[in-house]
Nucleic acid binder design. Structure first.
Lengths: 191, 191
DNA sequence: GATAAATAAATGAACGTTCATTCCGCCGAG
DNA sequence: CTCGGCGGAATGAACGTTCATTTATTTATC
């Protein structure tokens, strides 16, 4: 097994154990066991448990960003780009429920609090699809005249609740429902 | 100090410590210290830490329900009752940020997962304001024809995000903004 | 055979909970 | 009125467990 495989195997195991059992009840020993590795080995690949957790989150965020940018309909009107983003996001997490549960935990933990602040004051050149959409929409007067943070809350807030409900089995996010949800999101922020 | 005072003092301390520092980093020792009692004393009032946490949550939920029912405009049209509920909820948590942070943590922890399921299959006579509103709205065809769980996600999902943003200081939920948010919520679920 | 990688036992810190001891307010006897 | 002692309440040191991390040792690779 190549060392990069072993590293991946550790990350995959951490993803599974933490997503399934929560940050509590995800001891290094358990992560090592599922990865088929001894506890000490993890420390050859990650500085410590915190770093493993943080890096894993970064990687998941990266995957999602890639997915959103792929086939992003740059040419379409705002409304289509917006609903496309929502539909893709929902599809991604429906296909990768563990990713959702991991990130949900991450952002509801001390790790996530700082990550959130970081993200808000992100003045790096890194484009953020959602941020651009809101800005454009406000300028064009097609969106409600609310702070973009508020628009973001109306866009993503419901999605979190819905994905949770889907993953525990209370609702089924099929293509039809996903479509209607995207429309409802748009309704809540359009002027 | 009467024993009921001591009990309250322990609960208040738990609320503060957990809301401010998270479930992690809220050891019994710290809760006891802030309550001005010894660690062992807590176990005279609560079976164990879990029970303290669960009972505290119940009490907070109770407070909120009271507040929502008080002055609830039963006679008004659906739309007014709906926006009233949202405004009151936001006002309550703006006035009691610790309550929000506590409950947020609670519902994002193993405690809350079961609580959520409990609530969903709650066939006790206990009326749930929101549930009734959605049911009525769907019957009257004034709300979108979506499962009430989805309507609930569109109603409460954004509020959670917004309250978080308010509490960390990213936005300021004043009366004007609260009003506009309630309207936007309505827009997202009305037909 | 030397170097790097992996192992699993050892370490020490943190935590919830217990329990032997202390504290304190009350009451009845003198 | 005073004093002794009784019982419930409170205490906090000690215990047992869990866990991340380190380390000494073994195993694999070139």
């Amino acid at each position: 097994m190549k060392t990069t495989d072993k590293r991946n195997s550790i990350m995959q195991s951490a993803l599974e154990v933490i997503a399934e059992r929560g940050f509590h009840d995800a001891p290094i020993a358990k992560i090592a066991e599922r990865a088929g590795v001894a506890a000490g080995t993890i420390y050859r690949y990650f500085e410590n448990k915190d770093m493993l957790i943080i890096i894993l989150n970064r990687e998941l965020e990266e995957k999602i960003n890639e997915r959103l940018r792929k086939n992003y309909p740059v040419e379409q009107p705002l409304r289509e780009r917006f609903t496309y983003m929502i539909r893709e996001l929902l599809r991604y997490f429906v296909a990768n429920p563990l990713h959702f549960r991991y990130m949900e935990q991450y952002y509801n933990s001390p790790y996530g609090i700082s990550r959130r602040k970081e993200r808000l004051s992100d003045e790096s050149g890194k484009r953020d699809i959602a941020r651009d959409l809101f800005k454009e929409g406000i300028e064009q007067q097609v969106l409600k005249d609310l702070p973009s943070l508020v628009l973001a809350a109306f866009t993503f807030g419901p999605l979190l609740s819905l994905l949770r409900d889907h993953i525990v089995g209370f609702i089924r996010l099929d293509e039809s429902l996903i479509g209607r949800i995207a429309e409802a999101c748009w309704d809540s922020i359009k002027k």
